[in-house]
Design a protein around this nucleic acid. Structure first.
Length: 222
DNA sequence: AAGCCGGGGGA
DNA sequence: TCCCCAGGCTT
């Protein structure tokens, strides 16, 4: 096992968390779905955001909420109409599954979304990421998540941007998560990946992790 | 672990 | 053109 593949030291992890939360305090993005804890709204935003950029989701999220402001409203609509509203976000199975989830919620959960991670995972269209996001952002239960942004950030900072098994990154995401600030931490990780530790041309000059980032120390081109 | 599922925006 | 994007599901 190479040194870089070892579990990051505690010092490194705590420094990362502290600096990330401080950075987030000043640079967080202002996004519509951060102004609510309504599970339905959170779920819709997370499903829309699956493999889809924030900038494209924002206007569609607003339109969707005007048309389908609640689980009941969505369940009452036809699949055909719902699919039409979705266009052109892509991955068009997503609105169908969302619609099915709404009808299931009305039928089995009294119009509410399930509250446990396991139940959420049982719904088609909700995987490990989305279940964790709903738990953290809607129910306030700190739950680790791993998306494109977080995957890239953790890889670079702790493993020098080399290929890293998913299971390792999930464990790290779990180990880092501060239980008293789960919401901010998970949001911060994604903001950080989307604006500083970007896929192309990362903003290392403005990065608070630069002093201990493995990718930066191993390749100073950035 | 890999392939597939859309569609738009940026370099 | 190619790459990337707040993933999930099936093989």
């Amino acid at each position: 096992m190479t040194p870089a593949a070892r579990r990051p030291t505690r010092d490194r992890r705590t420094a990362f968390v502290r600096r990330l939360l401080r950075w987030y305090g000043h640079h967080q993005r202002n996004l519509p779905w951060r102004r609510t804890r309504n599970p339905y709204r959170i779920l819709v935003s997370e499903v829309m955001l699956q493999q889809t950029q924030v900038s494209r989701v924002i206007p569609k999220y607003r339109e969707w909420m005007r048309k389908y402001p609640s689980v009941d409203a969505l369940a009452a609509a036809s699949v055909r109409e719902v699919r039409g509203t979705w266009y052109p976000l892509g991955y068009n199975i997503r609105p169908v599954r969302l619609h099915r989830i709404a009808r299931t919620a009305v039928k089995n959960y009294g119009g509410r979304l399930p509250k446990s991670r396991e139940e959420l995972l049982g719904l088609e269209g909700i995987g490990r990421y989305t279940a964790g996001a709903v738990m953290t952002f809607a129910y306030g239960v700190p739950t680790p998540i791993l998306d494109t942004n977080i995957r890239r950030v953790l890889r670079r900072v702790f493993y020098g941007d080399r290929s890293t098994h998913e299971s390792v990154l999930w464990r790290l995401s779990t180990a880092l998560l501060p239980t008293d600030r789960g919401y901010d931490f998970n949001q911060a990780l994604m903001d950080f990946g989307a604006t500083i530790c970007t896929a192309r041309a990362p903003q290392c000059k403005r990065c608070p992790m630069r002093s201990f980032c493995r990718a930066y120390s191993e390749d100073k081109r950035w």
